[in-house]
Design a protein around this nucleic acid. Sequence first.
DNA 1: GTCTTTCTAGCAAACCCTAA
DNA 2: TTAGGGTTTGCTAGAAAGAC
Length: 276
Amino acid sequence: MSESELRILESLARYKYLTTSQLDLLNILKNKMGLYQRLRELRAGKKPLIANNSFGIMPGKGKLEDFYYLTSKGQDFLIENLEYNEQKIKAPKGTSSLFARDYFHRKETINFYIYFDKWINKNDGDILFLDYYFDKIGDNRSKKNLRAKNKIDIEQTGGYIIPDIVTKFTYKNEPYLFFIEQHNGKDTKKLLKQLYFHLLALEEGKGAEKYQMQKNHRVAVIFEFESILKATLERIQNINEFKGFEKFFIFKTNESLNKSFFNDWIDLKRINTNLI
DNA sequence: GTCTTTCTAGCAAACCCTAA
DNA sequence: TTAGGGTTTGCTAGAAAGAC
């Protein structure tokens, strides 16, 4: 087992799913071509440590990258050899289900975690936990209580939210709670409805209650298109209910996130702000 | 000398452009 | 309109180079 193969396993345990370009982003090997060889080794044999999902070809995009993840053998390896705590390993249960319709959204969501890690590693902070919208708890066989880990029920109107990411972290010894939404596509109406539910969750103090915080969380939305970010800001100005909650919502595009994780966010008053 | 990493060539599939 | 060449993206195989 080479050092780079160990790092691949550790990265998969942290991020759950990774494509080769994401592994490349993590600087595991200097050359991306070398990655394919390491991945092939880890995938080899009757009981491989990792497995992959392929998504074929999408018109206009070419061949899509595979998603890699730890097998149960891979998880056992980390527990036995590197003394990993089983609770801390992110890995799909059983054989991973496909998520072709969710491909780009899931990839961007995982990208956020990678950029978050890169930023916090260079700063005075620590991620206490980070859960994705596709992390589940419960089971659907005996107890029939399988549900998204991030699900939060809204009392006023019924309904619920499942933030794409819920994360709690410390920065300069202060704790912070964030709900992250990754918005792909151009459906502002759907997003506004979603943000309204987020507003209700804030009003009800749901984040603070569920995750033991003294203060309210912040909702950060990452947009695929800048035009949709602007359109959403424009439309939200006219919705009275959001008044007084402007500072709890911050917006950014994926492109801008890649340039700077901490700076250049925009709040609902269109004021340039940072993450905190 | 061996194991690991990097480099080079090439395949498959889809898109774009141009010439017949 | 069609056919063909070039390009892009993701990946594999195998040889060469590098690290210990």
